[in-house]
Design a protein around this nucleic acid. Structure first.
Length: 941
RNA sequence: GCCCGAGUGGCGGAAUUGGUAGACGCGCACGACUCAAAAUCGUGUUCCUUCGGGAGUGAGAGUUCGAUUCUCUCCUCGGGCACCA
């Protein structure tokens, strides 16, 4: 037998696969037997393939090869995200055209990926910088335009002065450009936007449909940032103007003591004539404009200016309140204006403290240790009703405010006084102002009766019953209560109790009804956060209803998500297919005229204006074709536009009539498995979902989520445990590993390092270990004999383990299992040929070149690619003899070799007869003997 | 500040409907082969130990016959968001 020579066999098989078109996408695929595996689209950087890329492609490839052996028709393609800034920046530096440097980089990438033996269909390769690709990127833009989802607006944008380009929010890191680390400034510019906000609710809701990492779903949800609340209108005194604000806490409206507008708010300009201190205001506005996002973030102290001469009216109590502008209010969220409730909002509180604005508390409960004067975290509170009637207050201990049991102190003449004193004593709010809202406090009566207190105005009655039948009487007794049923788990969550405790309780009421005193379950304390939420939500609902009834406001759902800015004043991207006529009116480029080609005569030096403006070729013939004075839109599209739909192009890459044919869409979509980095969660992944939903609404696809199952790869760190970087000199080039150890070793090592999704450091010795393992397998060939019989038990256990682990993407443990088998076989004299062939199949997704070679040595004339994946024999993986552990008081004192079908009593008897057990029992009688089938006997003395 | 996630030998990591913690690999030690080294093979390898055992999965408590796994508190590290009203 020859020595294991990976170089030789790897190039041999790579050539074979290429010649035989082994990995060409099957043409007879149907929706039921297809398997679409998608490794994320790489940016072909000049520095070549990274070990992180290799990890993604190998993991996808293992899965793809496994699926082929299960009989699936697999689609696996690789393409290039080949437009973008780095190539253009490189061009500026070196004067090498991006087209040239990009294509060179692609050639390198392609060769490197091929050298890893990744089984992709190279006939379907696409590159987003090719006109036959970006034609369709432009087509997508027109689709958005047609559906009213693309628009231009002037807005303050993130501007990187070094890249001379606009950056999306996710391209800004810590206020700096993610590419060049220049501090990002704000500039007012007219830009193209896509109305992704119109899809915010669906993008949020449909996350329930996908199988993605939990954290990823959560991050995307947070990014979309839905909050529920109300729009409330505040009139401006002596004027026709109104200011709308969004609030999530309408229940604190009574505490709104001033308003704040973002400096950019348009009403500020409308008030110009009325504002007495206009100069000061104007100065503040221009200062704000100069500030970068970074400045705004790092500034600790809030600033602002009052609009003197302007007063707003709080709609719930008609109080006159001042109006300010301040840059802590964002113009881009909600209406760009807020009602400030300093008593219950930390930011408003800070601001009010600084400028001496009134702080009026309308929520009584103080939470935590923040005893600073006047501040109270939003929590339980008093609520208003129609005629300013109010109330219920809550205390620290019980979650509701409790007046002194049995009445009030002698000094207290009225309930209000008692309340005021209590508040001061228990919360430390010296300046608490009870005010007129509480003058009708007679509505809140109370009876002191041990644990039970009554607050008649409270309407939240929450009751838990463990056993309905058992509590029939209680139910009957309280039939006028509002019941809220909870599951067992909810109850455990809701109360600071352990499950056992909950189990023993019949009924828990958190609050009380109009007539009946409060009822708390015995031995149960109430979780204050839970109560807060309960009470606050109840109050919010009531307040919103009241606002709507009185036409002062309405229910509103607000999102953090902003529209997607897609224009770039750069050269190396897809031109935006729009035209301006002689009046400056917009017109889409007719579909037949696509693609709008990127010209070659461009000076790509950044000026801050779009380079395409100065291209003769680009503008040539426009007037002749479209009309006098017509001009092309000179901006190019954000590269995220290119990568938002590439997985569709793979389906039908040479189609020049459609982005993909309806048949191909029907057959292959959605993607079955998508592997990509966690950095794309709020960019690429969100945009791709948006694209798909628009296609769905246009009736072009029959599904509205593109990626069913999605996972992230972890970061591969350098041997020094730091992120790989030229700066640290710790970069590992996968091609060096392939050259020195072979592709199979490189692939297997990357998979063996640890769980796919974890960050893990590189270890050269680990690579050698994998190479040793492959050598061991190679040498097993000597022992393979056609007529040999071998014990197949371990083999079948291995089949089971490897199969299950591939399904779960636990490649590291799948490899461990194969190692265990090989270690056993190494000790044997002979190995049955049949068994070895099965093992080679298990190995083939991981080390395809070696597997092909071993497979052909076993006598096959063709590739192992389409052989059937082995199944394990259930009967063979059952052990006849098992080891029973005997524990005495939790400590292992003996091991019993017993037959697997031993009965409970037999096992217990046998355990007690053991010498060592007898010794440890010291003649004592066991109190209890526990038997766990197939595992252990536990003896308690 | 808020929200997640994770802490297991010298290292990467295994093991969860609660059931012998440390699979597999690396490293290390010893042995075989060799004049020698490398490579390879074999044996051992959580720590302490008076060799009977004892301790041990970030710390502390709790539930249990039994906890890396469940509950609570705290610590450390990593990630995300960051004036979102």
């Amino acid at each position: 037998m020859q020595e294991y020579n990976p170089k030789e066999i790897e190039s041999k098989w790579q050539k074979y696969w290429e010649e035989k078109k082994t990995y060409k996408t099957p043409e007879n695929a149907t929706h039921d037997n297809k398997m679409y595996i998608l490794p994320q689209l790489p940016y072909p950087s000049g520095s070549g393939l990274h070990v992180g890329h290799a990890e993604v492609y190998t993991a996808c490839d293992i899965y793809a090869r496994y699926q082929r052996m299960l009989g699936k028709k697999v689609l696996q393609v690789i393409g290039w995200d080949s437009f973008g800034l780095p190539a253009e920046n490189y061009a500026i530096k070196t004067n090498i055209h991006p087209q040239e440097s990009t294509e060179k980089a692609i050639d390198t990438f392609r060769e490197q990926i091929k050298s890893l033996g990744i089984s992709v269909d190279w006939e379907r390769e696409v590159g987003s910088h090719n006109p036959d690709y970006y034609k369709w990127t432009q087509w997508f833009f027109l689709l958005f335009y047609k559906r009213g989802l693309a628009y231009r607006k002037k807005q303050s944008v993130n501007w990187c002065d070094s890249c001379k380009t606009v950056l999306a929010n996710e391209q800004v890191e810590d206020g700096k450009c993610e590419r060049c680390s220049t501090v990002v400034e704000q500039r007012d510019m007219e830009q193209w936007y896509l109305k992704i906000t119109e899809y915010a609710d669906r993008l949020l809701k449909d996350l329930d449909k996908v199988d993605w990492p939990e954290e990823t779903v959560k991050r995307q949800k947070d990014w979309i940032g839905r909050s529920e609340g109300a729009m409330v209108e505040f009139k401006i005194q002596n004027s026709k103007f109104k200011i709308s604000v969004f609030t999530t806490r309408p229940d604190t409206l009574f505490g709104a003591t001033y308003m704040v507008l973002a400096p950019e708010h348009e009403l500020v300009q409308d008030f110009k004539n009325k504002i007495e201190n206009w100069e000061e205001v104007e100065e503040y506005i221009s200062q704000t404009k100069l500030k970068t996002d970074l400045d705004r973030q790092t500034e600790k102290e809030k600033t602002g200016v009052e609009l003197k001469g302007i007063k707003a009216i709080n709609p719930v109590n008609n109080e006159e309140i001042p109006v300010w502008i301040a840059d802590y209010v964002l113009s881009s969220y909600g209406t760009g204006a807020i009602m400030a409730v300093p008593a219950h909002d930390e930011r408003d509180w800070e601001f009010a403290k600084k400028y001496g604005l009134p702080i009026k508390q309308v929520v009584a409960r103080q939470i935590g240790d923040r005893k600073e004067e006047g501040y109270c975290r939003p929590g339980a509170y008093g609520i208003i009703q129609k005629d300013n009637k109010v109330f219920v207050l809550f205390d620290k201990e019980h979650g509701y405010y409790r007046l002194p049991g049995g009445g009030f102190d002698k000094e207290d003449k009225t309930p209000e006084e008692a309340l005021k004193r209590e508040l001061a004593e228990e919360t430390g709010f010296v300046n608490y102002e009870i005010g007129e809202h509480f003058t009708k406090l007679e509505a809140c009566s109370y009876t002191g009766d041990g644990e039970a207190y009554q607050h008649r105005m409270l309407h939240a009655y929450y009751v838990k019953l463990i056993d309905e039948t058992r509590n029939k009487d209680l139910l009957e007794e309280h039939k006028d209560w509002d019941y809220h049923w909870m599951t067992y788990d909810e109850a455990v969550d809701a109360f600071d109790s352990n499950p056992q405790e909950i189990g023993e309780i019949d009924l828990i009421a958190l609050a009380m009804d109009k007539q009946t005193p409060c009822f708390t379950g015995e031995g149960v304390s109430v979780n204050s956060d839970f109560l807060d939420e309960l009470i606050t939500n109840d109050a919010k609902e009531k307040m919103i209803a009241w606002l709507e009834e009185n036409k002062l406001g309405e229910r509103k759902v607000q999102y953090k998500l902003r529209d997607w800015s897609v224009s770039r004043q750069r050269f190396w991207g897809a031109p935006i297919p729009m035209l301006y006529d002689e009046k400056g009116e917009l017109h889409p480029v007719p579909e037949n005229d696509l693609p709008v080609l990127l010209p070659n005569d461009v000076d790509f030096k950044p000026t801050g204006e779009s380079p395409l403006n100065y291209s003769k070729d680009f503008n040539a013939g426009v007037e002749e074709k479209y009309g006098r004075g017509w001009k092309r839109e000179p901006d190019t599209l954000d590269t995220f536009m290119c990568s938002s739909w590439y997985y569709y192009r793979y389906l039908d890459p040479h189609n020049d009539k459609e982005f993909a044919s309806p048949e191909s869409l029907k057959t292959w979509m959605p993607v079955d498995f998508y592997l990509g980095g966690p950095e794309h969660v709020n960019g690429h992944l969100l945009y791709s979902r948006f694209f798909t939903k628009v296609l769905f609404d246009e009736g072009l696809v029959g599904f509205d989520e593109p990626f069913l199952k999605h996972r992230h790869q972890g970061l591969i760190l350098g041997e020094d445990n730091r992120k790989m970087s030229k700066r640290w000199g710790n970069v590992i080039n996968p091609t060096d590993i392939v050259n020195e150890f072979g592709a199979d070793t490189a692939r297997m090592y990357e998979m063996f390092m640890g769980p796919l999704e974890d960050d893990k450091p590189w270890d050269m010795n680990g690579v050698k270990g994998i190479r040793r393992f492959l050598e061991k397998i190679w040498k097993l060939q000597d022992k393979v004999q056609a007529d040999a019989e071998s014990d197949s038990k371990l083999l079948h256990k291995t089949i089971k383990k490897v199969t299950e682990d591939i399904e779960k993407m636990h490649f590291n443990t799948a490899i461990s299992a194969m190692m265990e088998l090989v270690n056993e076989w190494q000790k044997a004299d002979k190995i049955s040929k049949e068994d070895f062939a099965i093992f080679v199949k298990l190995l083939s997704p991981f080390a395809p070149h070696m597997a092909e070679e071993l497979w052909s040595e076993l006598g096959s004339g063709s590739t192992i690619t389409f052989e059937t994946w082995p199944e394990y024999d259930e009967s063979l993986i059952q052990d006849d003899m098992i080891t029973l552990v005997v524990q005495i008081n939790g400590k292992v004192r003996a091991n019993l070799e017993v037959s697997a079908d031993i009965s409970e009593s037999e096992a217990k008897d046998k355990a007690l007869e053991e010498d060592n057990v007898k010794k440890w029992l010291e003649g004592k009688q066991p109190k209890k003997v526990i038997y766990v089938k197939g595992k252990l006997v536990s003896i308690v003395v």
